[in-house]
Design a protein around this nucleic acid. Structure first.
Lengths: 132, 132
DNA sequence: TTCTATGCAAATATTTTGCAACTCT
DNA sequence: AGAGTTGCAAAATATTTGCATAGAA
């Protein structure tokens, strides 16, 4: 990977980056701490590293609408969106970006940098569990 | 307005509903408490009332991606989306829903209930302040 | 050597819970 | 009257900050 030139490659940073890059799902700061259990790294460090990574656009901070938890994932720059199951809180990738090209914001001169989409609903397993 | 039949019209509920319906922007639990300053209502009550309102689909809980704050707004059922300025954290309404009709989720059988969109960027004022 | 990042402690912020008293219907 | 709601205290959880030391460049 390409490490930002101004970021020192410290043990916590490398370890946290590793964990995020190996995870198939977004992780909370505590999830990350758990994966670091043997490495004498503190939660405050995890928070600081995640803040730093976010500023450098290495990772994305998202909010899980089902649990209101703060989650982080690698910014793979592949523009993925997720569907969140309101039952089991699992996240499923959406095939394509479902957004239109031209977006009009009510305030003229708004420069769009990025967008986030969350699809909310119920996955097949949860629907069947509900015996609809 | 149509009050859900099973919800008692108590003082805190009516007051909180009033505040949300008069606000032009989404509010945090603390914002709401501040507006209730004179009324001897506690933060825990605000949280409980908001939870209840959310369950009954009277309000929407959103997360401010710029500050990571939890905000609540009346669910006006008009399917509005917002653009959030990463500079000043103001929210601007988006004219139309910019999402495509057909969304494909990687897990078959996913039942879509709703969606949320956040446009991130910089408003005109913040762009000029940055003297780009 | 210099400057940034971290370990650790402690503070602050946010949200939840338990229970007795209260109040809508 | 009775069930559901609230005031209040207190706990649980999440996040931030300060500072001396350690470690990368």
């Amino acid at each position: 990977m390409t490490w930002p030139i101004h970021l020192k490659r410290t043990k916590p940073r490398v370890a946290i980056y590793e964990i995020l890059s190996q995870s198939q799902r977004p992780l909370s700061p505590k999830d990350i701490l758990r994966s670091l259990a043997d490495q004498d790294i503190w939660l405050s460090t995890v928070y600081r590293v995640l803040d730093q990574f976010e500023k450098d656009h290495l990772i994305l901070r998202i909010n899980d609408p089902a649990t209101n938890a703060t989650l982080y994932e690698l910014d793979r720059h592949d523009h993925k969106h997720y569907a969140v199951c309101l039952g089991c809180h699992q996240r499923f990738a959406i095939e394509a970006c479902p957004i239109h090209e031209d977006i009009h914001v009510s305030s003229d001169g708004f420069e769009i940098i990025d967008h986030r989409i969350e699809i909310l609903g119920y996955c097949q397993a949860c629907r069947q569990a509900a015996i609809k």
